[in-house]
Design a protein around this nucleic acid. Structure first.
Lengths: 336, 336
DNA sequence: CTATGCTATGTAAGCGCTTACATCTGGTTA
DNA sequence: TAACCAGATGTAAGCGCTTACATAGCATAG
């Protein structure tokens, strides 16, 4: 680094300037332990005068606390990410903590930089971390909260997610009961992703409840990804897909579907209807506006931070937080 | 924290297990200094066997390097943010560094948690940090790169941004020369934001070049914000705005404009045309698709990281990186 | 054979904080 | 008045690393 070492102000300089001990300075800064108003005033003055900034590393080393929480994600991708980050960032900042972010995408997921020694706790998003590593962290008692992923059996790691199954089920219920569709194609998400799993289950449950046989030909891979969905649907169309509506497992893939259908000159919803899941910001602006299931992404993120902070403090937290989803009916499903 | 102290593995345990000194372990881990293949193998084996993870705080304290870069933003808001973060995250990870993110929104910007003692360098986005603090950091030689903000005079802090003035100017040139508009309203961004400043200058320069008198009545405040733009345009319309086209200083505010115009039952582009700036992902999907100026947001972020890393390493970098913008013509400007 | 210069390794002094413990006040209480 | 206690402060021992410096071994050069 290129810093001017001579100008480095440490707690020692502050203590000298203020005429107190370093312990007192520390007490003032951290509001730990009793300090007389006069001493506190002198310390604040010294800090101001010297432009002192505490060294986070030294602090962390001495206190074994980092005052930071880590967010582990797979990669920065998809509109989904923005509200999630906003929720996390706001909640973290509100508590005066720092936020570290790391994407494990492509990495050996066991060498991610965050973890037990860089943060006080971790929010693990979806499948950003392999089960073994989660086990390891849990075993050493490291605070963790899982976001959009459930705890491995018997492990009791708090997790927060949305009612994926229920949301998907209600969407299909609606398509069948209100719109009268019976040929409902499903564009599923990645296997490893729990959201994807439960949404598919919800889809299947609703079909079963309405005595519609499950047809594997009506299921293809969307991968929670615009490009992948685009590709899959283009192929489907070539092969003469017979469906009245496509249920894309998330809105990002719904966009891919929309593009593919437009390319195939199929009108939405006249020729084929389309619905998604998440209600990302884009959804309302698409042409036609997308019917979808609203997932409270930002709220889930915020709650995850709250839970994590509680875990760090050693407080009790509920093991599973399941946030309700809500049907958002727009034109793409043929409602209007 | 709730961690099991007894199980804490430090470099000492690793050294003992491997039968070498801590210095050797450190050398192996950091690939600094010569180590015999045998010793290295023993150390790796020990690390594996004990599941050792180095403590980032201790490392930072001892080496005065954090291996982390900080991204300072105002707040997590707007579609703009996503590609920027993606660019930063990718570039940071590619270099094996960590990323810390902090929003200064609402905070006393002088107490932001990142900085000289938590990171090796800082990417300062737009007006996330007041000039005084930038001065202070620069004075102590702390590595910084400014993103979408130019260096204070005489300070020579590297900055990377896009050709705002040029882009805005070419957009207006296009509106006048190709579309034949002469009543061009401008919805400006926040004063404090340099992008906003230069885009307005570009607008004015083009007007001047085409002998169109600048009319302050045709300028209102969009604030780079959907809601603000919505509000401003609704008022404008009530007051009987006479314009052929609205140039929103960024796409987020263009969305606000679009909503306001639809509420007022004005058709785009038949009754009034609309153009934006940035080409966020949404732009292409709006109804009608938005004519805008494409700014290479992700690329700018990536370059900022590259520059910062060079500064940290003490290498030379260009002071100003100005990335080209590009007109993207879609239906909202009345082109088709 | 000694001087020289590598490479490989160990020793130990911090890095800038926090915090357990000791100390010293002065006010309360019995 | 003596005993006690709580508030205010200081002392100093680490926290887990990195790294300057010292040392040792060994090949090569003179």
């Amino acid at each position: 680094m290129h810093m001017d070492d001579s100008s480095r102000i440490t707690i020692v300089e502050v203590a000298q300037y203020a005429g107190v001990s370093t312990a007192t300075v520390s007490r003032v800064i951290n509001k730990t332990g009793p300090v007389s108003p006069e001493a506190a005033a002198k310390v604040y003055a010294a800090i101001e005068a010297l432009n002192y900034r505490p060294n986070a590393a030294a602090r962390g080393l001495a206190s074994r606390r980092t005052n930071a929480i880590g967010l582990l994600i797979d990669e920065v991708n998809g509109e989904f990410f923005l509200p999630m980050l906003r929720g996390v960032e706001n909640a973290v900042r509100q508590r005066g903590m720092d936020l570290l972010i790391s994407a494990t995408h492509g990495l050996d997921k066991t060498s991610y930089p965050l973890g037990e020694n860089s943060t006080d706790g971790l929010i693990v998003f979806a499948d950003s971390l392999p089960k073994e590593e989660i086990l390891r962290l849990h075993k050493i008692g490291f605070p963790m909260v899982l976001l959009y992923r459930s705890s491995p059996p018997n492990l009791s790691i708090p997790c927060v997610t949305v009612e994926n199954k229920d949301g998907a089920r209600r969407m299909v219920d609606y398509l069948v009961e209100k719109r009268g569709y019976r040929k409902i194609a499903f564009l599923e998400g990645p296997d490893s992703h729990e959201d994807a799993y439960w949404r598919k289950i919800g889809y299947q449950e609703s079909l079963a409840a309405h005595n519609i046989p499950f047809d594997p030909k009506l299921v293809s891979f969307g991968g929670f990804d615009e490009a992948q969905a685009h590709l899959s649907v283009s192929r489907w169309v070539e092969q003469g897909l017979k469906a009245e509506v496509i249920f894309a497992a998330d809105d990002d893939s719904a966009i891919g579907v929309m593009i593919a259908l437009k390319e195939a000159e199929l009108r939405i919803p006249e020729d084929i209807a389309l619905v998604g899941f998440d209600d990302i910001r884009l959804a309302a602006y698409l042409d036609p506006p997308l019917t979808t299931v609203r997932a409270p992404i930002e709220q889930a993120a915020r709650i995850a931070v709250e839970q994590l902070v509680k875990v760090i403090r050693g407080e009790e937290v509920g093991l599973i937080t399941l946030l309700p989803t809500e049907l958002v009916i727009r034109r793409s499903c043929g409602c209007c």
